[in-house]
Design a binder for these strands. Structure first.
Lengths: 342, 342
DNA sequence: TTGTAAGCGTTATCAA
DNA sequence: TTGATAACGCTTACAA
């Protein structure tokens, strides 16, 4: 290694002609510093480009200034947006983001995450769907007193450490959109019912239809697994019925893309013969033909809020805010939905 | 915060009845330890689940055990795969991965990256395309002696710190694939010529055609920007010519998707009337209709190799390997390419 | 409001 | 082959 020419707190103290304790106070925004002193020190810090060493800081204060992001999501775009959102806040508050992809279905998943946490010494954890739905994981972190915030689509019985995307509310929008287009025979391809998000969307959709005097009969419901392949299977089951529905809402864009594929195979024209809508607005939604009407969650914004709340709960001075944060997704109308042909 | 009940090196030393210096030696695999002592210490470490504190270790040894990943890539899937590949190695070697998205076109890009490096105190940096093409950034890291490995598609005049995806070689495969299908009038939509990767693919493709006795005339070349939108523009320019080419190779899948879109708009049937191929195998390649023939880079493998090489160059004991690593992408044949109609 | 001194958990120096 | 002891750069009692 090379000679470290880095400026330390001692250098700053020497230059400023005060003790390093005072510099430390300035760095940490303590009020116990004279106005004049503070300004002088801040000036010097800027001039010499002093950056406190995170390692030393962490060692002394038992904090790492590291935040962990745990995920296991097939939708890379979603993760990317979460990362960017989280980093917006992190970097402005002096934290770094350490990523940890995992396999939340595997046996040692909890252990693996705990191990990650202790290895990396992160000060807090952000968990995104679907991993965020694991109550076990949340409890595991709670038991070792590691602050953890979950991004989810319902409060999961733990409203404190959560940022919620109001998927259910968005269901109203998509249902009304289809109804306004004149559709009355609407089908749904659900996600795995083990997921709260899927259940929320399913029930939200059903409710929205009912409010508008429409039914979602059994033969118009297909249970998918959020994959392209199951989207294909479910859509086939739906579209080979007689009569067939005039609109399909799929729990995510992957399955909606599967439905588009099946329609193409069966010679069903979209959107003329059939309207299809998805959820996520992932990259394929705007790339397939026809482009997909879908629901977009403001993921980056959600991530920002979550990170903010997490750092707040870490910071010793601030009392943790116990208010539930809810963000509402919104409808994006594209080519795949159109006036009902009848 | 809570009482730290963590095991420290002192505890281990006390239990083993040796000095902590000895424990340190064992941890770091120093040969200066007696066989018996080593085994006993290792046994105890396992029993009490001692994990050396990265912060303290870093503070003392001037290392952070953190690796930085710098990127600015529209393809989230690519980033995801890089992350997973890098983490495969990181976690097995006791490193963590800190991510830093950036905007490599912006003015303060270099400064921003340097700032990230000094803030986070990472021990090394992984840079992926297109950021990796910035020689300035590579030099900046070199000048502060921060090990940095670049993932790229040609050696960029810096064969030491690089892992190369042999895009040019892959061009031969795709060209030959089209030629075998009987195509003789083949067009190309290039990427931005400012990118080495685009130039490599462009020239690789041209060369491969030439070797097979085919030409790539000016009117069969369109210069795109790797975006869906420019893909559309370029494809339109190509497909409104008379006669039109029977096959198009696009520099990436996004633009190939644009070409598919234009074909659909113009009533040109793919693959019957026209074959289209892309590069990347990103998610849309398998989702659009028809699915795209494309080139896949083994991104995760490349990331693993890069991370390995980086950590090697960081580790003090090991001499840095000065061998160029090259990985070859491969062809994936899907629906969008077919026998030439003529 | 400011300073002194004692750590935080590890590695590095140098002697035994 | 081992072990005391001093760093590493910062925070945190405790004084002043």
């Amino acid at each position: 290694m090379e000679t470290k020419t880095n400026i330390t707190i001692n250098d700053v103290a020497r230059i400023a002609g005060v003790s390093k304790r005072t510099i430390s106070r300035v760095i940490n925004g303590s009020p116990m510093v004279g106005q004049a002193t503070r300004e002088r020190v801040e000036q010097i810090i800027k001039e010499v480009k002093f950056q406190p060493d995170k390692q030393a800081r962490g060692l002394a204060s038992n904090r790492s200034y590291l935040l962990g992001l745990i995920y296991d999501n097939p939708d890379a775009l979603y993760i990317d947006q979460v990362q960017r959102g989280a980093l917006d806040i992190c970097s402005s508050l002096g934290f770094e983001l350490v990523v940890h992809p995992c396999q939340w279905q595997s046996d040692d998943f909890i252990e693996d995450c705990l191990n990650f946490a202790s290895r990396s010494r992160v000060d807090g954890i952000i968990v995104i769907p679907p991993v965020s739905e694991s109550d076990k994981l949340a409890e595991a972190f709670k038991s070792i007193k590691l602050p953890c915030i979950r991004i989810a689509s319902t409060d999961l019985g733990d409203p404190d450490n959560i940022v919620i995307s109001d998927d259910r509310g968005a269901m109203t929008d998509i249902a009304e959109h289809l109804i306004e287009l004149g559709h009355t025979d609407i089908a749904m391809i659900t996600g795995p019912m083990a997921f709260h998000s899927s259940k929320e969307r399913f029930e939200g959709f059903k409710d929205a239809l009912r409010v508008n005097g429409l039914d979602l009969p059994e033969n118009r419901i297909q249970f998918g697994e959020n994959t392209y392949e199951t989207g294909i299977e479910c859509a086939r089951a739906l579209l080979t019925q007689t009569p067939r529905p005039t609109a399909i809402f799929a729990n995510n864009d992957e399955m909606a893309a599967g439905a588009v594929r099946v329609s193409s195979d069966l010679g069903i024209k979209i959107p003329n013969d059939l309207s299809i809508a998805g959820f996520d607005d992932n990259i394929i939604a705007s790339r397939i033909i026809p482009s997909l009407t879908t629901i977009k969650r403001p993921v980056q914004k959600i991530a920002r809020l979550a990170t903010q709340k997490l750092i707040q709960s870490i910071s010793p001075d601030q009392g943790a805010e116990h208010e539930k944060i809810v963000v509402k997704p919104y409808l994006i109308t594209r080519e795949s939905t159109k006036q009902c042909p009848n």
